[in-house]
Nucleic acid binder design. Structure first.
Length: 917
RNA sequence: AGGAGCGUAGCUCAGUUGGUUAGAGCAUCGCCUCGACAAGGCGAGGGUCCUCGGUUCAAAUCCGAGCGUUCCUACCA
C-alpha cells in the first residue's frame, strides 16, 4: 500500500457510494430516521454544522449497518431574511434598489442566487462523508412544502390559533421588517442616562425629573409614572406635566412597576416605543403615539422641526433644545443592554405595526406534556429545564415579515379592509361568496422562516398527503442540534407536529455543545476566528486563510487584528488532514460539555491515528495476501486474547452509541487499534508469522490478523468511513465475503462465547514481563539493541508454564542475551528487579547497571509502596471502616495490603543486598 | 436580577449508581533508524481534583457557602 494520503481516496469513495444509491433506505428492517436540520440554502458549512452532521452520520451509518431501514432526510431552508439581505446587497453593488425591481423581478433574482450558490452546502456535506438520502432532497420553498405551509396556516387560522393585530414588535429599521424576539441580540454597551426636567402643567416653577437613555422617544410620551406609595409624588398623581418641545399635557400616573430607588423615581412613559411602557399604556389606557417612520426617522406625529430626521440626529437636536430651555438636569454615563438585529447588526426599535401572530399557549401545553411524559427525551437531560422555562412563559409568536423572499401570507383584503384567509384567492371567493368584481388584494407580507422549518419532520415526508414515507419514517428517531435553536426551532417543531400529525416529531433531542475557537470564543465572521471544515480537510496556506478571514468584513478596521491573531495561531497555515481525521476529532470532543474548544493539535493527533491504522493494515496485507488463509486454523491464546479485546471494544461502542457518548466510542476504538492491536497483537504475531513454525500455526495467525482487521474496519466505519472502505476492499473475499461495500456490511456484535479471560490473563502476564524489562532498560539507560540476561526468580508453577509457552515471544520482544529460571533457594546475582506477582524478574547488574542507580530506582518503588501500605493500614485499622464498609470492599483492601506487604519485603531484601555490595 | 453549566497535569479533556495507585491525547525530558508506521517505537517526569465547611467508615464524585468563568432568560426608564 502507498503512504496514507486521505485526499487520494475520500472523494472517489463518496462518488461511488452515491452513484450506487447506498444512502437510500434499504426497505428492510425497523425504520430509523433523522431529518437534517436544514442548512440555509445559500449558506456555507461552519464548524458547528460539520460537528453536528458528523455525529449524525456515524449514527446513521451505525444503524444502517445494524440492519435498520435507515433514512437521513436531506433538505435546505430558504432562510428568509438572510437570503433577502444577500440578494439586496448584491443588487446594491450594481446600484439597484429592490424597489426599482419590484416584487416579481426581485424574487427572480433571489431564485437565481439560490440556483447559483445553493450547491455549496451540498458539496461540503458530501466532503464530510454525510450519507444523506439526496434523492428526496427538499427545500422549504418548493411546491410540496409550500402546500404544507399553506395548509397549516389556514387550519391554524380556522382554529383561531392565528390572528392579526396591531402590536409592539421588534422592528429592524434597516431591513424594515419585524423580527422575532429570538432574532434580537442584546449586549452591554456604553450609553448615557439623561435626567430631564418635565415642568408641571399647572405650576410656574415646579418640575419632575425623569431619567432616560432614549431622549428622542420623549416626543411620544403620553404619561409620567411614579410609584403609588412614593411619598414625594403622592400628591401629584392625577396632575399633569407639560411635555417639553411638544407642549402636550400628559398625566402623572401611579404604577407599581416604577422603582422608587432608581433615578428620581419618575419614569417617562412612551407606550409606542418601549415594551414595558406598552404594557403600562394598556393598563392605564394611555394613547400610543408612534413618532417613528419604518426607517426610524421621526414622523409627522412629532413637532415639525424634527420630522424626517434620523433617530440619532433627532436625539442630538432634542438634547440641545432641552438644554437651551434649561430642562437638562444632568447626564451620566450608563451601561445598558442594546438590542441589535442578529442579521443587520442595527439597533432595533420596538415599533407599533400590524402583524400576524400564532397564539402560542394552547399549542405549548401538549408540547410541554410530551416532554414531561418522556415521549420526547432531551440528551443531556438538563436541557429540558431550558425548554420548560421557555415554554411555560411562551409569548405569542409574530410570524409576519415585511419581506418578499418567503411564503406569502394566504390572506386577502377587500376594499373595506375585511380579511379572508384561504388556500387560494379562488377558495376565498368561493367560501365567502365574493363576486368576481369584488377586488381582493393579497397580504404583502411573508411568513417567518421558522414557520416552515417548524413543519420540517413531516412536511419533508409528504404531508399533508398520507404518504408511505410519512407512515414509515415519522416520528423521526432523534434530532441533533445546538442548544441555541431549541427555542427557535425544536420547541416549534414539537408544537406544530403534535397539532398536525398527532405525534412527536422526534423521540430524542441530542443537544450538542457549541464549537468555539481555541480560546473559547464563539466562532464568527466578524471576529475572524472561524474555520471552514474544508480547510482542515484539504489544508490551506496562511495567506489564503488570512485573506478568507479578512475578506468583506462588516468592520474593516478589525482586519489588522484578525490577521495578527491568525498568523500567530496558524503560522504555517493548516495542513491537509483529511475527512476521517477531522471526523474522528469531532467524535473525540463530543463530550457532555456545553462548549467545545476546537484544538488543531487534536486533529493532528487523530490524523496520526488514521496513519497508524493504515500502516497496520499494510502490515497485515504484507504478511497475508500472498497466502491462502482459508485453510484450517486453530487460534492460539494470543489470537483468542485479541478477539476478546475486540469483543470488549464492540460492547463499549454499542453502549456508547445508545447513550450518545461519541467520545467514549472514539476512545474505545482508538485504544483498541493503537494500544492493543498495533502495540501488542501485531508485535506478538511477528515472531510467528516470520518463523519456521508449522503452516497451520502460521495460517492461524494470518487468519486472525485478517479477520480482526476486517472486524475492526467494520467497527470503525461509522466514524472513519473513507479509509475503512478503502482498506476493507483489499481484504480477501474469503475473509470479508462478497459484499460490494463496507457501508452495507453488518456491524460487529459482541459474542460472549469469544471472551476468553484466561487468554487475557496470559497476555497481561506477558505485558507485565515485557514492560518490566523495558522499564529497567529505560531507567538504566541500557540501549534497546544491547542483549541483556534475564532471570525469572522464585516463580510459581503457572509462571513456569507461561515462560515455556511464551519464551519465543518474550525473546522477540525483550531481545535478551539469555533467559534463566531460578528457584527460591538458588543463588541469585545482584540485579535490578521488577516484580511480576510473587515472581521476581531480574536483570543482573554486572557490567550493565550502576549500583547507585538501581538503589535510587528501588527507593522510588519502595517509597511508593510504603505510602500505599500506610494508607491501607490506616483504613483497616479503623474499626468504623471494618464494621461499616461492605465486606467486599474490606476484603479488597486486605488483599491489596497482603500484596503490597509481600512486594515490599522483596524490594527491601533486594535493596539490602545491593546496598551491601 | 433570576436560572443553568463549568472549574481535574503546562494545554485540551475523560473520570455514569461515593470505594481506581485520579486517567488519556498533545506538550516536556531521556533513549532508539529493529523491514507496518519518525505522522513511529520504548521509557520517564508532571496533579492541594478552585477555596472553605458539612454528610459519610470512605468524597474529584453528594450537600452548603464563597471565588472565578461561560451561557441563557429578564431587564431599572
Amino acid at each position: 500500500m502507498d503512504k496514507y494520503q486521505p485526499q487520494d481516496i475520500e472523494t472517489a469513495w463518496y462518488q461511488k457510494w452515491e452513484a450506487q444509491n447506498y444512502f437510500a433506505p434499504s426497505g428492510n428492517g425497523s425504520p430509523f430516521s433523522i431529518a437534517i436540520p436544514p442548512p440555509n440554502v445559500t449558506g456555507t458549512l461552519h464548524m458547528g454544522h460539520a460537528f453536528q452532521h458528523t455525529l449524525v452520520d456515524s449514527l446513521i451509518r451505525f444503524r444502517r449497518m445494524k440492519g435498520d431501514n435507515t433514512l437521513w432526510q436531506m433538505g435546505t431552508d430558504h432562510a428568509g431574511i438572510a437570503t433577502q439581505l444577500i440578494v439586496t446587497e448584491q443588487l446594491a453593488a450594481e446600484g439597484i434598489k429592490p424597489s426599482d425591481l419590484g416584487r416579481e423581478k426581485f424574487l427572480e433574482k433571489a431564485w437565481q442566487w439560490k440556483e447559483k450558490s445553493g450547491g455549496t452546502i451540498s458539496k461540503q456535506l458530501r466532503r464530510l462523508g454525510a450519507s444523506l438520502h439526496w434523492q428526496t432532497e427538499r427545500f422549504t420553498l418548493d411546491e410540496g412544502l409550500s402546500r404544507a405551509v399553506l395548509e397549516v396556516f389556514v387550519r391554524l387560522y380556522e382554529d383561531d390559533l392565528i390572528y392579526r393585530g396591531k402590536r409592539l414588535v421588534n422592528w429592524d429599521p434597516v431591513l424594515k421588517t419585524s423580527i422575532s424576539d429570538l432574532e434580537v441580540e442584546s449586549e452591554e454597551e456604553k450609553g448615557h442616562l439623561w435626567h430631564l426636567r418635565y415642568p408641571l402643567a399647572d405650576s410656574d416653577d415646579q418640575y419632575l425629573i425623569v431619567a432616560t437613555t432614549r431622549p428622542e422617544t420623549m416626543l411620544g410620551d403620553t404619561a409620567v409614572a411614579v410609584h403609588p406609595d412614593d411619598e414625594r409624588y403622592k400628591s401629584l398623581i392625577g396632575q399633569e406635566v407639560l411635555l417639553p418641545l411638544t407642549n402636550r399635557r400628559v398625566p402623572i400616573i401611579a404604577d407599581h412597576y416604577v422603582d422608587q430607588t432608581f433615578g428620581s423615581g419618575c419614569v417617562k412613559i412612551t407606550p409606542a416605543h418601549d415594551f414595558n411602557d406598552y404594557d403600562m399604556g394598556r393598563r392605564h389606557d394611555l394613547p400610543m403615539i408612534n413618532v417613528f417612520n419604518d426607517d426610524a426617522s421621526i414622523n409627522d406625529n412629532a413637532p415639525e422641526k424634527y420630522r424626517g430626521i434620523d433617530r440619532y440626529a433627532a436625539r442630538e437636536a432634542i438634547l440641545k433644545d432641552l438644554d437651551n430651555l434649561n430642562l437638562m438636569e444632568k447626564v451620566e454615563d450608563h451601561m445598558m443592554a442594546v438590542p441589535r438585529g442578529e442579521k443587520s447588526g442595527v439597533v432595533v426599535e420596538p415599533f407599533l405595526s400590524d402583524q400576524w401572530f400564532v397564539r402560542a399557549e394552547p399549542l405549548a401545553a401538549p408540547a410541554i406534556k410530551a416532554v414531561e411524559d418522556g415521549d420526547i427525551e432531551f440528551i443531556p437531560k438538563n436541557y429540558e429545564n431550558n425548554f420548560f422555562v421557555w415554554m411555560r412563559n411562551i409569548q405569542d409568536w409574530c410570524i409576519s415579515r415585511q419581506q418578499w423572499w418567503g411564503h406569502r401570507i394566504p390572506a386577502w383584503y377587500d376594499s373595506d379592509g375585511a380579511v379572508y384567509v384561504g388556500r387560494s384567492e379562488q377558495e376565498v371567493r368561493d367560501k365567502h361568496n365574493l363576486a368576481d368584481d369584488v377586488a381582493l388584494s393579497q397580504d404583502e407580507d411573508v411568513l417567518d422562516t421558522w414557520f416552515s422549518s417548524a413543519l420540517w419532520t413531516f412536511s419533508t415526508l409528504g404531508w399533508p398527503d398520507k404518504t408511505p414515507e410519512l407512515d414509515t419514517f415519522h416520528s423521526t428517531d432523534v434530532m441533533v442540534t445546538g442548544h441555541d435553536i431549541i427555542t427557535f426551532w425544536v420547541s416549534r417543531m414539537i408544537m406544530m407536529t403534535l397539532k398536525f400529525v398527532g405525534e412527536v416529531p422526534f423521540k430524542k433531542v441530542y443537544v450538542t455543545g457549541m464549537v468555539t475557537d481555541a480560546d473559547g470564543q464563539k466562532q464568527s465572521k466578524s471576529k475572524g476566528n472561524g474555520l471552514d471544515p474544508l480547510d482542515i480537510i484539504d489544508g490551506i496556506s496562511l495567506d489564503d486563510l488570512v485573506a478568507k478571514r479578512t475578506d468583506s468584513l462588516l468592520q474593516p478596521k478589525m482586519a489588522a487584528r484578525i490577521e495578527k491573531n491568525t498568523r500567530k495561531e496558524f503560522p504555517d497555515g493548516i495542513k491537509p488532514y483529511g475527512t476521517d481525521a477531522l471526523r474522528f476529532t469531532f467524535y473525540s470532543i463530543a463530550t457532555r460539555s456545553r462548549t467545545i474548544r476546537f484544538d488543531m493539535n487534536r486533529v493532528e493527533g487523530y490524523r496520526n491515528f488514521c496513519n497508524k491504522l493504515w500502516n497496520a493494515a499494510n502490515f497485515v496485507f504484507i504478511n497475508t495476501l500472498e497466502h491462502d488463509v482459508s485453510a484450517d486454523h486453530t487460534p492460539d491464546v494470543i489470537d483468542r486474547w485479541i478477539v476478546t479485546e475486540l469483543n470488549h471494544t464492540v460492547e463499549i461502542i454499542n453502549q456508547a452509541m445508545e447513550t450518545y457518548r461519541y467520545d467514549l466510542a472514539a476512545k474505545a476504538i482508538y485504544e483498541f487499534i493503537w494500544d492493543e492491536f498495533c502495540d501488542w497483537y501485531v508485535e506478538l504475531t511477528k515472531p510467528i508469522v516470520n518463523s519456521d513454525a508449522s503452516a497451520e500455526i502460521i495460517n492461524a495467525k494470518r487468519f486472525t490478523l485478517l479477520s480482526v482487521l476486517e472486524q475492526t474496519l467494520r467497527m470503525a466505519h461509522p466514524f472513519l468511513p473513507f479509509m475503512t472502505e478503502e482498506i476493507w476492499q483489499q481484504i480477501p473475499t474469503a475473509i470479508r465475503g462478497e459484499g460490494a461495500t463496507i457501508m452495507r456490511e453488518a456491524y460487529p456484535e459482541c459474542n460472549a462465547k469469544l471472551v476468553d479471560q484466561a487468554a487475557k490473563n496470559d497476555v497481561a502476564w506477558i505485558k507485565d514481563v515485557v514492560t518490566g524489562t523495558r522499564n529497567i532498560r529505560g531507567e538504566m539507560n541500557i540501549s534497546q539493541g544491547k542483549p541483556i540476561p534475564i532471570i525469572f526468580y522464585n516463580g510459581g508453577a503457572e509462571d513456569k508454564i507461561r515462560l515455556d509457552a511464551y519464551q519465543t515471544l518474550l525473546e522477540f520482544l525483550i531481545r535478551p542475551e539469555s533467559i534463566t529460571w531460578l528457584q527460591e533457594n538458588d543463588n541469585k546475582p545482584p540485579a535490578s528487579t521488577h516484580l511480576v506477582g510473587d515472581m521476581q524478574l531480574l536483570v543482573p547488574l554486572a557490567g550493565l547497571i550502576d549500583t547507585s542507580a538501581e538503589l535510587a530506582r528501588l527507593d522510588k518503588e519502595i517509597d511508593r509502596k510504603e505510602k500505599d501500605k500506610t494508607r491501607i493500614e490506616g483504613k483497616l485499622g479503623n474499626p468504623n471502616f471494618v464494621d461499616k464498609a461492605p465486606d467486599a470492599v474490606v476484603q479488597k483492601e486486605k488483599d491489596k495490603l497482603a500484596d503490597i506487604s509481600s512486594a515490599l519485603d522483596r524490594l527491601r531484601e533486594q535493596r539490602h543486598k545491593i546496598a551491601n555490595l
